[in-house]
Amino acid sequence: METTIRQATIGNVTVYKSEPFDPVNSYFSSFIGRRNELRLITASWISGAHKMPLNPILIGVPGIGKNRLVYEIAKKTSHKLFIFQGHEDVTAEELCVSVRFGKTSNTMDYILSPLATAMIEGGICLLDEIGKCRPKALALLVSVLDERRYIDSNLLGERIHAHPGFRFIAATNTTDINLLPEFILSRMRPQINVGYPSKDEIDDILRRECDGLNSEVDDLIDLFWVMWREHTGQLGSIAPRDALYLFGLASRLSAIGETSEYAEHGNAISGIADTFPDKGLHTGISRVHLEMAFHKLFTEPKLEIPIRI
């Protein structure tokens, strides 16, 4: 649904702004750890009379919590957060504005990208998976990241200047960092490596997720870590997303109430979300559920179709 609030005028052209992302409180209620990273981002974004804010880039493996960091800082600073999802097919113009057919015939609507919207609104723009964008597509970003702080749109024939409150951050997977061209990389500083959270932080995240379980959760967390250590040879070194998926799957297995043949209950899965309240979702996880979920997610061999030659 569109409202007039989303409309803006640039030069003499009326455009539609992108929607900001509002982290839903029930999913992103509390934030654990990452103090150094938060401080570093904040420090990079402080600007002065003769000093522009810097444009940090978060580097880390998938699921480590790069985006979550940005959500948290957006919440803390009460800035609107606009997320531009990078991928291989992004074009340079899409980075700024795109067009669609209007509601009436013979008209076109201009849709400002999340980046351009953040620039005019003075919000935060997160360019996620920047490493997946082709270098050509990133060319327009150059003027945004240096002292010019504007972006030129050929489609609009206008120049969009950044609001003083505009802040930019990008995120990429560790493996993609080398694919970024030097003209972008040199403007994206500091590079903030987002490493695996400590075991204690993961424990706290899991405790928060399993707040219906009280004392049993510590036993389950211990079990999870011994299984993880045997699987990977390490303690810690797990992305929070993986740990949460594991406990999420275990809780759903416990909800079905069966410890085996859970696939047969596939029909029941669609109803689960309605039958459980937000809190206490994880009530009832037993060791067996956790072991099954662990096997399913981490140790089960991937399905391979044998080919004989």
């Binding site: 401080r39 570093l40 904040t42 420090a43 810097l54 500083r189």
Partner: peptide, 21 residues
Amino acid sequence: AVESSHLPDLDWILSNLRLIG
């Protein structure tokens, strides 16, 4: 590059970290 951009930026971020801390 170090002289013109990296060093001032390093100093800037570290100054900001001092401010935050």
